[in-house]
Amino acid sequence: MTSAIEMVDVIDEPKAIEGRSPFSLALRRLRKDKVAMISLVVIVLIVLMAILAPVFAAVTGHPPNEQYRDIGLTPDGLPRGPNGTFWLGTDDLGRDILVRIAYGARISLLVGVIATAITVVIGVVLGLAAGFLGGITDTILARLIDVVLSVPFLLVAIALVSVTGPSLTVTVLVIGCFSWASVARIVRGQVLSLREREFVEAARSLGAGDRRIMFVDVLPNVIAPVIVYTTLLIPVVIVTQATLSFLGLGLPPPTPDWGGMISESQNYYTTAWWFILFPGLALLVTTLAFNLFGDGVRDAFDPRADRT
């Protein structure tokens, strides 16, 4: 080591502001956001409810698909309101709504997470490829994105499910295959400007290939918007799944799921308010919690909107 360098070390300019990774900065902001934290607690509770669904069944003694046509229905064959045995009442077949809601949470969360994950992975990879590789790849992918975004999603989803028959896999695939395009468009837009940045050229000058540059250099720079989009996508997916169920294209009965329960309750809403209220509330609380949390995540990653 030469003396010049050592000397330089001593007189080096003052340090730049002590910062953290953009990620941990966002995390810190998020932690200070009360609404987001409360929403997170609610989300955790819903997840717990889904995981502990068998416990609900064990404690009440009512398996989710068991029909109590004697004690669960009025003599006229109508659902029973909340009482000591059926805390949240029963449905039209005399099943325990509370237990079914707990089991329904599994479906909503499972679809929400898996379909979102598929969506984001496809969207990020294709968006990266389109934006970074450019040329013919981009032309084709950009048209494909246009196509998917122009198709009336719900109509085609309904049509597809009616052709293939309803199942969890089909629901997840249909949602995943139609939602990736918005992610891809966001990512592509970001990558288009990122690829002109000097650090990409620096990587190239070191001998990095396209794939490495895409995933090691460019990808970390699009993570923030992707995270924001992902948290806001989960509730949308949950609603979509419930909507398909509501239209009779969810899961084959008797599997409990929220959209299906609400659909079944339609004929009883004049006589059994609990039948629609509790599943509806479960669905609403879930999407609201995810949306509020997602909103907090967005503000945490892009605090600009709150600066005055």
Binding site: S21, E198, F199, E201, A202, V216, D217, P220, N221, I223
Partner: peptide
């Protein structure tokens, strides 16, 4: 550009 040539997220 010592700012642009280093990847800010790595």
């Amino acid at each position: 550009d010592p700012y642009g040539s280093l990847n800010p997220r790595r």
